[in-house]
Design a protein around this nucleic acid. Sequence first.
DNA 1: ACAGCGATTGCAACCATTTGCAATTGCAAT
DNA 2: ATTGCAATTGCAAATGGTTGCAATCGCTGT
Lengths: 139, 139
Amino acid sequence: MSQSGDIIRKLSKQGYRLTPQRMMILEVVERADSHISAEEIYTQILARYPHLNISTVYRTLELLKELGLVTETDLGDGRVRYHSMKKGRHHHLVCQKCGAIIDLDESVLSPLKVALLREYKFSADLRHLAIFGRCANCR
Amino acid sequence: MSQSGDIIRKLSKQGYRLTPQRMMILEVVERADSHISAEEIYTQILARYPHLNISTVYRTLELLKELGLVTETDLGDGRVRYHSMKKGRHHHLVCQKCGAIIDLDESVLSPLKVALLREYKFSADLRHLAIFGRCANCR
DNA sequence: ACAGCGATTGCAACCATTTGCAATTGCAAT
DNA sequence: ATTGCAATTGCAAATGGTTGCAATCGCTGT
């Protein structure tokens, strides 16, 4: 964790405490192959360290979101998934028929972001979106 | 309910049954001032007609969504809200600081829809979106 | 090293929504 | 009008996530 120092500083600078639970949760999210659910984070940590409650996982993920370290997205499978911001921004197209998930570059949404800013003076938080619809094969 | 005929035909044509519960739920959604929650639909009907279960409300709303009669949207207050399709399409900008909700014309999202169709051959279902961020006053 | 205080955690209860299943009911054929 | 059967409902349990509160713990100043 060469980058932990940054995060530790970021936390303590804003008056947040560095607890073992927080460190482990952040570590699991950063290590994760890709999008990981709260339950998955919870059971992974519990296997090695039994002093953790699921509500702490949710509260910590909320904090990491506010600090801009993770993003969340709902791919439509009844649970929210989290993703380390360090691993790059992107979005998803989710086919409602076959379930295919197509990754989408951030740039596709920049015109929308610009339009909302210009026409409504609204700064949209389009960090990690899931857009539902039908893929090429399912129409 | 001058339009009920349409809906009744639409239901029975596809093998769905016309139950009193369904009729009342649809009626309440169509009558509603604007975006209404499942719980609100449930209690409104229960006041006059006691044979209704909340899970029937959810299942009926799911059906009405599939038939294109209602849309749902999550304005970030921990419950999903429903809206009659007959009352026009629109989207919402939700300010995460002050909670302001700005209504958005459908047209703002058409360039995105076109781009996704052209570049990804993906037909996006952008029926009733909530976009989160910061409004003009809160930046 | 220790005390004090506020931040954080665990716990249990709660909330909105979904699901499996048996009982009921709408509707088509008779 | 009656029957048969699949669609629908009600119920109760389960799911993912949130919250209030008392107990605990990290950090700052001594």
